[in-house]
Design a protein around this nucleic acid. Sequence first.
DNA 1: CGGTCCGTTGAAGCGGATCAACTTTGGTGG
DNA 2: CCACCAAAGTTGATCCGCTTCAACGGACCG
Lengths: 247, 247
Amino acid sequence: MTTRFRAVPPEVDWRAFKVRHHKGGMVFAQGQPVYHWFEILSGVVRTSHIKADGNRRVTGFFFNGDVLGVESGLRTETAEALSDTLLLGHPLAATESAASLVDTPFRRALRCAQSTLFLVGRGSASERLAAFFASIATRLGSTDRVPLPMSRDDIADHLGLTSPTVSRTIVAFERHGVVTRIGRDELRVLRPDILLALAGERDLPADCHADMALRAMVRPSDSSESLTAQPIATAHTVQPQDKAARP
Amino acid sequence: MTTRFRAVPPEVDWRAFKVRHHKGGMVFAQGQPVYHWFEILSGVVRTSHIKADGNRRVTGFFFNGDVLGVESGLRTETAEALSDTLLLGHPLAATESAASLVDTPFRRALRCAQSTLFLVGRGSASERLAAFFASIATRLGSTDRVPLPMSRDDIADHLGLTSPTVSRTIVAFERHGVVTRIGRDELRVLRPDILLALAGERDLPADCHADMALRAMVRPSDSSESLTAQPIATAHTVQPQDKAARP
DNA sequence: CGGTCCGTTGAAGCGGATCAACTTTGGTGG
DNA sequence: CCACCAAAGTTGATCCGCTTCAACGGACCG
């Protein structure tokens, strides 16, 4: 819950500058390099993130006094003015030089929290779990090994699911040859490409339609059990417009 | 996505100390004052937040090299060791003195991101929207006025819902006298207590069971339309164990 | 005054929650 | 070392809330 006061005292506003945007204007765009962070003097700004699958995720709304665009490297999100807006821009370099050593933990925690935002709140159980597993594997630097020292309930409470759903989805992953269970608290990723595709981080391999197959997997209503043979899916190109990009 | 390197160079590790926890141990507890932040040398830690309604939300898992507990004031979450764990604790005071002015925007952004985590990914559409409206009102300092300069699609994409659901839920709120629509892009909150209760931030007023009533509202299947008369609900004490605390 | 966009409302289907039974695991003590 | 027990995971059946796909209405703007 952000407060409504000035973010930094005036003496730190070295080379701070005012920017005016009118309704619909773009403050910064996803993919651009980060040069400044902004403080809202008046107006409303919306930040959103477009995933590889085209889905949009609105990451925040910012009102008078709020701080936005605090990141480094490349913009992970786009900021647009929802109304005529007056911003105070702060050069990131000035901030960096004074606190480059110290604020690192804050930034890392911020990145971590923001990446978690993309895990929860959107997408099916398969997508969330795939993203979760991919995230763990990436953070540990191991391509295929995914330790799960937490309980299924922990995972469920983290992703906004329930324990039975987590179980079913993992079993479905395994039935499709995406992962293998090693004991109770470890996975081995057999098809990282499909895992990332399910997570929405990259496009699906052309040879399969994992999401449709996995959907059918979790709910074994149809008796067409031809799945144990082939790892993932037949060459069905029938994309049911499942959760494609909005127009 | 946090990296796996040391959070800060050694010269900043003034009075850094190692802490060892065994499986199940509590690193810090929700509500305690914040004195340190931690860096994981080995093991796994889980952070979770208990809401007023008793629901638990697992906010993150932290592995080797991750940073956790970066906040100020009182702990908003509890951290527990999922395995035998070795931590490196950093006094917050040392970090503060060097960067008290500069890291403020990072902290505010972090708080903002973390609070957003509690909005999405859990709870019904009513809960998410209630929390969203309450959040806007709080941030603007106005108890009752809630401007909505963003489209319904924006709100939906932010909360992990869809535009029709947002519409229906707002109308349901209005039918219960919780809010009133002023034009298209502004709300007036008539019953802040119920709004906060729906958001899970505090207990319900004893005289009503808003959640049950609102559920029935959104889906007008039953024709028992006695709702326009009394603001919220009759004195039904029939709590259907809806989303109560887990044991 | 007409057109277009956005919001609202309706009907139908599905995904995940819920409740409950069963199985497995891991830990403990005999 | 094995038997037992408690805790966790898996599986099944049913239900409900949200999504989806439409159609309608209303507001803003030319």
